[in-house]
């Protein structure tokens, strides 16, 4: 599937406005594994014909990891700079590829002058399924496959979004199995609160290993994720358990793109 990813600058030069801005996020921009998810989100947007754009090199960290680490200065510097860019482009609606960006822009930007209609990509996928624009046909069949979904903290407990990602999986006719700790009781992958960027404190187990053990108890063929940081933690866990051949860790966007042959 070949198409060009449009940037806001290009759209503005052409005197156009997008329906929605796709906020890629740092992981989605730089992390090799997450880049695949980013491209799949673009494929979905392109496939359904939504007029979208990205900020490209004008995007910058939302400030989330700085804020969770306690650096409010750095967070607000980032936030205000980003808000300036977003407001200059007259952005109304944003879809993010990351629950952390989603939470920060949706909840913490309004108080600093940036109010937008913000959704996470799993919500976009749910909406597209409900509108009949996305189906699970023309691609890889997930029918009957055992899939377990890992709730990202900042999507689930942080913002109460439990159903959208599950809806995206239900449409596959797959066999959804829940882990013991799921939804509001879900266990963190271990990356949140700026843990992604540091070594864990002394303990007797890594959090991602605890989570992978639990996920593997469901005997899944696919572990579904909705966050690039969870993706890193869960993939590392699977590698450590030497289960890469049997179990795939895939983002909801990747599963959707595959099921639709994008």
């Amino acid at each position: 599937m070949e198409f060009k990813v449009p940037t806001m600058a290009e759209l503005m030069a052409a005197g156009e406005e997008p329906e929605i801005l796709f906020w890629v996020g740092c992981a989605g921009s730089y992390d090799e594994r997450a880049q695949k998810i980013t491209r799949d989100i673009c494929k979905i947007l392109h496939h359904v014909g939504i007029k979208y754009a990205v900020l490209g090199t004008e995007e910058s960290c939302t400030g989330d990891p700085a804020k969770r680490a306690g650096n409010e200065f750095l967070f607000q510097m980032q936030a205000m700079t980003n808000i300036e860019v977003l407001n200059a482009y007259n952005i109304k609606k944003i879809v993010t590829g990351c629950p952390h960006c989603f939470n920060t822009i949706k909840n913490e930007y309004p108080g600093l002058g940036g109010t937008y209609d913000v959704i996470h990509h799993t919500q976009l996928i749910q909406d597209l399924i409900n509108e009949g624009k996305l189906k699970a046909e023309g691609g890889e069949s997930f029918k009957g496959k055992k899939i377990t979904y890992h709730d990202p903290c900042y999507l689930g407990r942080g913002n109460g979004i439990y159903e959208a990602p599950r809806k995206a999986l239900e449409v596959l006719d797959a066999q959804l199995v829940e882990m013991k700790r799921c939804k509001s009781n879900g266990l963190c992958c271990g990356a949140g609160g700026a843990q992604m960027f540091k070594e864990p404190e002394k303990g007797n187990k890594d959090i991602n290993v605890e989570r992978i053990d639990e996920a593997l108890e469901t005997n899944p063929q696919v572990i579904a994720a909705g966050c690039p940081f969870c993706m890193t933690m869960l993939s590392d866990g699977i590698k450590l358990k030497d289960k890469e051949q049997e179990v795939k860790v895939l983002d909801i966007a990747e599963i959707t793109a595959r099921a639709n042959g994008l």
Binding site: C26, Y30, S60, G63, N71, L74, A194, F197, E199
Partner: peptide, 16 residues
């Protein structure tokens, strides 16, 4: 490592 992450955001607008 948290300081490094914050330094990266300041200088490169990304935690890496």
């Amino acid at each position: 490592s948290i300081n490094t992450m914050m330094g990266n955001i300041e200088n490169n607008q990304a935690p890496w």
